[in-house]
């Protein structure tokens, strides 16, 4: 095993992380700002004798992933906001068929075509289901190139464990920025099926046929299936909620942010703590399930929610605190980023 520190972009780190986590199938369609990821997979997947397909559309890409996953393989696709909107049909089917898959969204500003500047404005879409039906994706929000890499292992494991789609939600900065990454080069060579998948489509040799479907014609059957999903989501909430907190206990004001926004917030906390200000940070790592418990430690503090979007995560913070009296919001839309200066001004 070779351990090495390299400079790499978030997009490429996600790709390498996926490959090392055993991703056997990738399909994608070009869209900025995640093109480096698709190009990286085009190069590396063939080197590893795995499957890369540039699909004819976002919709085809996610459905190819559905097929690969149904066949029992670790599969992923990636895109950016408008492309992720197109993939929602596939996401709903993945959830309904209980198929594991990893979907990467390197967000850009919307709505519509918007622009290619980094944003976090797909928070609602990512954390509230996104497509049709009662379902959730597990949503992970890395905030550094190192986490972008590390979370791919976590994402594929969660997807397999719960047979559920997992989304990596990053903004354009996370995809584009280049940072040092410590990589342990340890590529699994043959065992792509890390968890035994006896439900997978392999041909019905010496067993009854396997059927992958989300279709339940009878109302009661579908309700029963939905309740099963809900039970699963409850388990995920209980077991897999993750967050990072800094100096929360004695804080008078607590910043809440994820992704790139959380880096800026962390810098502010460091700066103001040095000056004696009682300030802290809660950084959700799983956006769904949202880390409600993180807010129980110090519910009386003043909370300032920071977003590169316009008041999306702030709703979850208000729910966690069961009210909005002490919850404030600072965000920018359309590709803007609240600056360190702006945050410090609001904090004072």
């Amino acid at each position: 095993m070779k351990k090495e520190k390299i400079l790499i972009s978030g997009n490429e780190a996600i790709g390498e992380g996926a490959i090392q986590a055993g991703c056997f199938f990738y399909a994608g369609y070009p869209i900025t700002p995640q093109n480096e990821l698709t190009a990286y997979m085009a190069k590396r997947m063939l080197q590893e004798k795995r499957v890369f397909i540039q699909a004819e559309s976002e919709i085809s890409a996610i459905n190819m992933v559905l097929g690969a996953s149904a066949a029992g393989f670790r599969a992923m696709t990636s895109s950016s906001s408008p492309g992720i909107s197109l993939k929602q049909e596939g996401l709903s089917y993945l959830a309904g068929c209980q198929l594991p898959a990893v979907i990467v969204n390197i967000m850009r500003a919307g709505p519509g075509l918007g622009n290619i500047f980094p944003a976090q404005s797909d928070y609602f879409q990512a954390t509230k289901g996104g497509g049709h039906g009662d379902y959730y994706c597990i949503v992970l929000a890395p905030f550094s190139v190192q986490e972008a890499f590390d979370f791919m292992f976590f994402a594929f494991d969660l997807a397999d464990k719960y047979r559920n789609p997992v989304m990596i939600l990053g903004d354009g900065f996370l995809g584009q920025m280049v940072e040092p990454l410590t990589v342990k080069f340890q590529i699994p060579n043959s065992k792509y099926q890390i968890i035994k998948k006896d439900w997978a489509l392999t041909g019905c040799k010496k067993r009854a046929p396997n059927i992958i479907k989300s279709f339940y014609l009878k109302q009661k059957e579908l309700e029963k299936f939905n309740l099963l999903l809900q039970k699963k989501y409850k388990t995920i909430k209980r077991r897999e909620t993750r967050w990072q907190e800094i100096d929360v206990e004695d804080a008078r004001i607590i910043l809440v942010a994820y992704g790139t926004m959380a880096r800026i917030a962390k810098g502010v906390v460091r700066k103001l703590r040095e000056k004696g200000k009682k300030i802290g940070l809660i950084r959700p790592i799983t956006l769904w399930p949202f880390p409600q418990k993180a807010f129980l430690k110090n519910p009386k503090a003043r909370y300032l929610v920071l977003e590169m979007s316009y008041g999306q995560m702030v709703e979850d913070v208000k729910l966690a605190l069961e009210g909005d009296k002490n919850v404030e919001f600072l965000g920018r839309a359309g590709g803007g980023i609240p600056t360190e200066e702006e945050i410090i001004r609001r904090v004072k």
Binding site: L7, T32, G172, Q176, V178, E179, P180
Partner: peptide, 22 residues
């Protein structure tokens, strides 16, 4: 920009490099 960041990496400093991607 990339060279400066690579040099910083080799000197074990923290570094980041953000390209415009228009």
């Amino acid at each position: 920009g990339r060279v400066i960041a690579e040099v910083a990496l080799n000197e074990n400093k923290f570094t980041s490099w953000l390209p415009s991607y228009g």
